[in-house]
Design a protein around this nucleic acid. Structure first.
Lengths: 349, 349
DNA sequence: TTTAGCACTCCGTTCCTCTGAGTGCTAAAT
DNA sequence: ATTTAGCACTCAGAGGAACGGAGTGCTAAA
C-alpha cells in the first residue's frame, strides 16, 4: 500500500481542516474540497487505507477522521506550504525588531514577547550559551570605607555588578591591587577552578584582602553558574486555555504548570538545525506529549544563541508558525550579525 | 435585626465549611456542628435572617447557604482566628529565609516563590519604592578603544552596569573627565531632568564626548524609569486550575491571563497597613472581582519595600494565609532591619 | 477502479422521571 | 418569646429512553 498523490491530497485536507476547526472531517466534506471531482465513497476507501497506514485516526466509529501524530509529521515534512507572511505582518515584525534591544537578557525576553504576539500561541524564550562563560575582567570601585562595587565583565560581554559590604574597612588605595590580583588569577577559568584558586591564596594574602576577594570571587562564580542554567521567559501561556483541547481543566493544568511554574526540560533544536518541529509524542517531556512545539534558534553574537519556542496543541498551525518563526530568527540573526536594523523594505523569502 | 453571638457562630461554621469543601451547607449539618445543641429548625430561622442581612447566599432555593462577600468580610474582621503556624512550618519558613539573598530584585522574586510554596495559592511579588530613585554615582571603565562599561549606582544602593559600544573611539584618559561631568550634573535628579540637562550640555561639550554622555544618560534614565514600574513576579499561577471555581475554563482564563501575562494593577496594601485582605468585589481590578487577595508589605532597607500577594478564590483560607503571610513579612522586615538571619529558635506569636 | 446504495453504529441531544437535600411555614411545646 | 416538630414544596442533578444525524464499511453495479 503506497502513499499516492491523492492520499496525500486527502491527508492535507484533513490536517488543515482539523487545524482550523478542531473537528473530525468526514468523507463527504473531503470529497467536496478535492480539486478533482471524486465521490465520497472513493474518499472512504482512501480513508480506510490512510487509517490502516497510521496517518489518520477516528475518535469513534461513526465520526470523521483526525490526523495522528504520524499524519502531522508527514504533513510537516512534505505537505505543508509555509504560509507566506503578508506584507503587513512582515512590516509589523520589522517594526518590532527595530526597537532598540539592549543587553542579551533583554533580547531574549523581548523576543519571546514579540513572537507570542505574532503567532497566537504561548512561547518560551531562553538563552543558549554555546561555550561556558568565564570572567573576562574584574573591576572594583570604592564607594565609601565600608563598601565597594564589584564589576564583572563576562566572556560573552555581559557586564554584571553588585554592591559589597565589607566587614573590615579597607583603604581605597588597596583596591587596584586586589583587582589586579583578581584579573591575573581569576579570569578565563571555570567557577570550580576559581574556588580552588581562592583556597590556594587564602594564606598568601592578608585577612582583610581575603574577605573581599572571597566575596567577589563568590559573586563571580555565582554568575558563571547562573549562566549555565538560564532563566526561561514564557509569554502568553494563558492562551492555552482558549484551545478546545484544553477545555478540560485537568488536561490544561499539567501543561500550564509546566509553562508558567516549572519551565524545565524545554525542547531545543537538535544538532545543527536552526528550527525544529516536535509533534506530540515526539516530545521527550511528559507534559508536552500531547502538544507540539516549534523551536528556533538565532545568533546574537558573542557566541550566544537565543532560543524561542512556540507551544500549542498538536493541531497547531505549523505552516503559519514555522514561517513566522523562521522569519523572526533569520531577521534577528541578520540584525546581530551585521549589527544593524532590519531592512525597511520587506524581503520575504 | 442584630447580629447575635449565635448568628456569628453560624456564619463562622458556614464560612469555614465552605472554605474547606466548596459546597453549600444546610441547616441540619450546621446544627450538628453547633457547640450548644439546637435544632435544625432554629438554625433555619437564623439562616433566613442572615440571608436577609446579606451575609449568606443561596445558589438556588433548595440548596444550603454559602457566604457572600459581606459574609467573608465579617469573618475576616471579627470571626477568624489566625491559624497558628505549626512548629514545623515555622522552622521551614526560617530555613527558607536563612538562605542567602543577594540583590533586592532577587529578594523580591525569591519571596514570591517561598510564599507560594508555603500557602497553596498563587502569589505575586513586586517591589514598592517609597521614594523615586535617582542616580547616586556614575563610573566609566575603559574596555578597549571602542567600548566602555558604564556603572550606575542608584539611590537605593542597587548597582547596574552595561557595556557601551562607541561609534567614535575615545582616549581612555578622557573617561575620568566624562564621569566627573556625569557625577556633577546628572546625580540626584529625575529622568526628565537628566534629559533636559543633556540638551543644555549638547553644545558645550565636544561631539565625541557627547555621544558617550548621551548613551550613558539614556541608559541611566531608562533605569530610573524602569524602577518606577517594577517587574512583577508571579509564582504557582497554575494552582488556580485546581480550584473547583475555575473548573470552567472561561472563568479561569481571565484570571490566568492577568496573573501570568498582563500582571497590571495588582493590589497593594492601602495607606499604612502592613497587610490587607481584599475580598471579591472589593478588588478594583476587573479580573479579580471574583477572587480574593491577601497582600502584605515588608521592609528591605534603603527606603525599599517588598510586596507579596496571595491570590485565590473568595473562599480562600484567610486564616491560614494571613497567618503565614504576616509571619513571613515580619520575619523579612526583622531580618533586613537588623541585617541578620532569623532566629534559630522558633518564636511564634 | 470508481460509484451508488444501504444497513449499521454510535455520539450528542432532548425529554422524561425520580430522588434527595434543603427550604419556609405553621402550629405545638417550652 | 423562643424553640422545635412536622409537612408540603422546590429544584438541581442523576439516570434512562428515544431520536436524529453524521459517518462508516460493505456489496454490487457501472
Amino acid at each position: 500500500m503506497e502513499l499516492t498523490a491523492r492520499k496525500k491530497q486527502i491527508l492535507k485536507i484533513v490536517v488543515e481542516s482539523y487545524i482550523d476547526t478542531a473537528e473530525p472531517l468526514g468523507s463527504k466534506a473531503i470529497a467536496e474540497r478535492m480539486p478533482e471531482k471524486v465521490s465520497s465513497a472513493t474518499v472512504r476507501n482512501e480513508l480506510a487505507e490512510l487509517s490502516d497506514m497510521g496517518y489518520l485516526e477516528q475518535p469513534h466509529t461513526s465520526a470523521g477522521r483526525i490526523p495522528s501524530a504520524k499524519g502531522y509529521r508527514l504533513y510537516v515534512n512534505e505537505l505543508m506550504e509555509r504560509k507566506p507572511l503578508s506584507d503587513e505582518e512582515a512590516a509589523q515584525i520589522n517594526d518590532a525588531l527595530r526597537q532598540e534591544l539592549k543587553g542579551t537578557d533583554q533580547v531574549i525576553a523581548k523576543t519571546g514577547q514579540m513572537v507570542s504576539s505574532f503567532v497566537d500561541y504561548p512561547t518560551y524564550a531562553v538563552a543558549d550559551r554555546t561555550a561556558a562563560a568565564t570572567v573576562r575582567r574584574f573591576e572594583l570601585i570604592a564607594v565609601d570605607s565600608g563598601s565597594v562595587i564589584a564589576v564583572v565583565m563576562l566572556s560573552d560581554s555581559r557586564v554584571k555588578s553588585q554592591l559589597m559590604h565589607l566587614s573590615l574597612p579597607l583603604e581605597a588605595e588597596t583596591l587596584p591591587e586586589i583587582s589586579h590580583l583578581l584579573n591575573t588569577h581569576f579570569t578565563g577559568i571555570s567557577a570550580e577552578e576559581m574556588n580552588a584558586h581562592l583556597m590556594n591564596l587564602s594564606d598568601q594574602v592578608s585577612g582583610q584582602w581575603f574577605l573581599l576577594l572571597n566575596q567577589v570571587v563568590e559573586y563571580a562564580a555565582g554568575l558563571l553558574k547562573e549562566s549555565q542554567q538560564h532563566e526561561v521567559f514564557t509569554n502568553g501561556a494563558s492562551q492555552l486555555l482558549k484551545f478546545p483541547e484544553f477545555r478540560d481543566v485537568d488536561k490544561a493544568h499539567d501543561l500550564m504548570h509546566f509553562m508558567v511554574d516549572s519551565k524545565e526540560q524545554l525542547p531545543v533544536p537538535a544538532g545543527d538545525q536552526s528550527m525544529q518541529i516536535l509533534i506530540g509524542p515526539e516530545n521527550v517531556n511528559e507534559a508536552l506529549k500531547e502538544s507540539s512545539v516549534v523551536v528556533a534558534s538565532y545568533d546574537i553574537g558573542d557566541g550566544m544563541r537565543g532560543l524561542v519556542g512556540v507551544v500549542g496543541p498538536t493541531r497547531m498551525d505549523y505552516a503559519a508558525v514555522a514561517a513566522r518563526l523562521s522569519y523572526f530568527a533569520e531577521s534577528l540573526t541578520r540584525m546581530f550579525g551585521k549589527h544593524q536594523l532590519p531592512p525597511k523594505e520587506n524581503e520575504i523569502q
